[in-house]
Nucleic acid binder design. Sequence first.
DNA 1: ACAAATTATGAACCTGATTCAAAAAATGAT
DNA 2: ATCATTTTTTGAATCAGGTTCATAATTTGT
Lengths: 241, 241
Amino acid sequence: MGTKERRQREIADRELLFLEAARDLIRQDGLLNLAMARIADRCDYAVGTLYQHFCSKEDLLIALATINEQNRLDLLRQVMAWDAPTRDRMAGLAVADTVFVRRYPEHFRLVQFAYTEVIWGAASAERRRQSLEAGKPIGELVAALVTEAVERGDLEAQGLKPNEVAMGPWSVTLGTHNLVHTEGVLEQYDIRDPYRLMLRHVHSMLNGLGWKPYFDPSDDAALDRKIEQLCSEVFHDLDCG
Amino acid sequence: MGTKERRQREIADRELLFLEAARDLIRQDGLLNLAMARIADRCDYAVGTLYQHFCSKEDLLIALATINEQNRLDLLRQVMAWDAPTRDRMAGLAVADTVFVRRYPEHFRLVQFAYTEVIWGAASAERRRQSLEAGKPIGELVAALVTEAVERGDLEAQGLKPNEVAMGPWSVTLGTHNLVHTEGVLEQYDIRDPYRLMLRHVHSMLNGLGWKPYFDPSDDAALDRKIEQLCSEVFHDLDCG
DNA sequence: ACAAATTATGAACCTGATTCAAAAAATGAT
DNA sequence: ATCATTTTTTGAATCAGGTTCATAATTTGT
């Protein structure tokens, strides 16, 4: 009795269809102008059908952020599987984010909004659970890398748990994404290439954490080489700017 | 003819009244449940009057975030005026934020929301201008500190402009505030004292930037002493946790 | 004390999210 | 293939809350 399964698959496909339509609309008209009716329209379904999948607009936004995070996870996994020193992989995770931003320009803006009390709180409990669940592997990935670095002698944990160490670079990247998406700020402070700067600052922090081998953040050519290497060895097919 | 001035003052006072009511309501019922009618109610004014001050709800949110930032600026200025090495003052700025959070628990959550495309884009151009304007002194303050540090030989800029250096610690603190306000995340990664960790990571980054004198981030007692010192010498009257 | 100008009011309006009764489609037993 | 039953889809109606604006109240100037 494959009918039920087919149906199941169709439903899942439709959910994806809605989310992709939402993504398109956000890219096209901005998050500000996203309307449920328009998403349904674009997919030639009635709004009621859309509500069969998402119990509210907020719910849909969390769902969208969540599948994006899953795509991001794929990228991070590739970096993790890279045959390179722990430090290069750690820095590589930040590079992966810059690549991801090019592919999903709206993602971190959406994240900033979606994980706000207002949106998060209005999503369904189940959806929130899924979202947290989807985030778990990312945390584990980074924690595993920290653990490996400690084991290999590249890093001293100095009393911090892996997650606590990870929170350092994490806050740098998250903070940067935020600054990038806060209009007017970069212009005001005349910061031209925030993501390049992010990579430098990540390296400064890794240096500060004593994560070996030391890397000179002011060596632009070396940074270029690292990025180039990662892109050719890991992101074969992707736009590395 | 002081009548006009008095009137002016009354208007300004009322604006503050509205903003404080909004702040109270946010603390009480959450940003999610903030309603314009309720703000007006609580102040015993009609909604129309509220709209005489703020052309939209988003406008009000930006205004609230802006006056909060001005209060934050006061705190940061105190740190800047502290008679201490540049590095202590830099780290002190982060400590100031932790103090500020205790006083205005909703602020960074509000900021995260308000500076989102959706809210920012719906506020009036004038309000946005004011908000950027209000943020300027904070940037200048930090930039001035970086410049001073370079002049005193505490720090090598290594080709970065003051603002670009400042973006390092800035992203760490901003990122941390974000993590703190993203529900479920700290629990999931079992991070108990994010702001303490933030201070450690700020120090790691300052070490990584080569900002002298070196400070051992794993020395808990030393960190406590620094915090204690700042609180007694600068924040006499404030709750330093 | 009065006309003109300013300001405050809140019911009505409007937008867009959400619901739900009715219609359509799918299922499955005969 | 037919029909009763169940499931799914539909979109007009409802609802919530932000916003407007004609009217009322107040202030100002003479």
